[in-house]
């Protein structure tokens, strides 16, 4: 079971959180076309390794967080608030 260190609340059980997708994609602006929105919504790198993900601390502080997590070991290396940035380490 994941224990996700919420920057506001401390380490909490994964049961309090909900995963909300790859956080490396950015919603295109008003001028985005179908191709841009298609990539934003559908195309995924889906790495076997480190990934930056959106998680919401839904049953806690409701904050949307960016979580750097390894998709094989499940190690969580860093968590930042929504406006923060996380670098994906080389595989």
């Amino acid at each position: 079971m994941l224990r996700i260190p919420c920057p506001h609340c401390g380490a909490r059980d994964e049961a309090e959180f909900s995963y909300r997708g790859d956080a490396t994609v950015t919603r295109p602006g008003a001028d985005g076309d179908i191709a841009a929105f298609h990539d934003y919504l559908y195309t995924r790198t889906n790495p076997r390794g480190w990934q930056v993900e959106w998680w919401q601390h839904a049953a806690g502080c409701r904050a949307f967080l960016k979580v750097l997590r390894h998709t094989v070991t499940h190690e969580i290396r860093a968590v930042v608030t929504a406006t923060g940035t996380l670098e994906v380490p080389p595989a």
Binding site: Y19, W55, T71, H74
Partner: peptide, 13 residues
């Protein structure tokens, strides 16, 4: 389980 994984192991909740 609710999050991406290649880990082949599940979680308690």
């Amino acid at each position: 389980d609710g999050y991406p994984s290649y880990g082949q192991r599940g979680t308690l909740p």
